[in-house]
Amino acid sequence: ELELEEVDLYRMNSQDKLGLTVCYRTDDEDDIGIYISEIDPNSIAAKDGRIREGDRIIQINGIEVQNREEAVALLTSEENKNFSLLIARP
């Protein structure tokens, strides 16, 4: 049973970094989820404190993420200042 949490992050300008590194968990081929492998200690996500390494990203801004490229594109989008992440953890 996964616990879901919605985390809203806000950046003042497009130079601010959310600070999330995303990856696949390669140990299970059936698991195509996108996971947070690293959080930059000086980033918006780290200061917010709710997202943890190992969390799975389900949605970004209401869009279900299917692959790492999509997640990276959404997280690094210059147009977005508000990010709503739906994350899951066991």
Rank of each mutant, 00 (worst) to 15 (best):
R50H: 08
F83V: 07
N80L: 14
I44Y: 03
K17T: 09
E78G: 12
E70F: 05
Y24D: 14
I51L: 07
D16W: 03
I36N: 00
D28K: 11
I36T: 05
E29Y: 07
L75A: 02
G62W: 02
S14L: 09
I60W: 01
V65G: 04
G19S: 01
E5F: 13
L18D: 02
R68M: 13
V22Q: 02
I57E: 00
E64G: 03
E78H: 13
I44G: 03
I32F: 02
N80I: 08
I58E: 12
V72D: 14
I36L: 04
L74T: 06
R52H: 09
I36P: 00
R89D: 01
T21G: 03
V7S: 00
D16G: 07
P41Q: 15
K81H: 08
A73E: 15
E6T: 13
A71D: 05
N61L: 02
I57H: 00
V72Q: 13
N42F: 07
A71M: 04
P41C: 15
I36G: 00
L9K: 00
N67F: 05
R25G: 09
S77D: 11
A71K: 01
S14I: 06
L85Q: 00
E79P: 08
Y35D: 03
R25C: 15
C23F: 07
G19V: 00
E1G: 03
M12F: 08
R52T: 07
E5S: 10
R52W: 08
Y10A: 10
I58G: 02
E53S: 09
S37H: 08
L75V: 04
I39Y: 01
Y35H: 14
E3T: 06
I87T: 05
P90E: 05
L75Y: 01
D28E: 05
G49R: 07
F83G: 01
A45I: 03
N13P: 04
D27T: 15
L18K: 00
L2H: 11
E78L: 08
Q59W: 03
E69K: 08
V22M: 10
N42L: 08
L74R: 12
Q66D: 15
K17D: 09
V7R: 01
A71W: 04
D30K: 11
A71Q: 03
D40V: 13
E29W: 04
Q15C: 07
E69S: 10
G33N: 15
L86Q: 15
E3N: 15
L20A: 01
D8W: 03
Y10W: 07
R89H: 14
G62Y: 03
R11Q: 05
N42W: 05
V22D: 01
I39E: 00
E53R: 05
D8A: 03
D30C: 04
V22G: 02
N61F: 01
I39L: 09
D27C: 05
N13F: 07
C23Q: 08
E64M: 03
V7D: 00
G49W: 02
L85R: 00
E29L: 09
L4P: 11
D27W: 05
C23D: 12
A73G: 09
I51A: 06
E5Q: 07
E78N: 09
A45G: 06
Y10V: 12
E1A: 03
P90Q: 08
L85K: 01
C23P: 05
E5G: 04
L9Q: 01
R89M: 01
N13V: 06
N67Y: 06
S37G: 08
L20P: 01
G54M: 05
E79Y: 13
V72L: 10
L74H: 12
S43Q: 05
N82H: 11
L86I: 10
E64P: 05
L86P: 00
N61S: 03
L85E: 01
E69V: 06
A73I: 07
R25E: 07
I44F: 03
R56Y: 11
Q59Y: 03
S43I: 01
D16T: 12
D40F: 11
D31E: 14
G33C: 15
G33L: 06
S14P: 09
L86K: 15
S84H: 13
Y10P: 05
L20V: 11
E70I: 04
Y35R: 06
Q59I: 06
R89F: 01
G62V: 00
E79A: 07
M12N: 06
E29D: 09
I57F: 02
D8R: 14
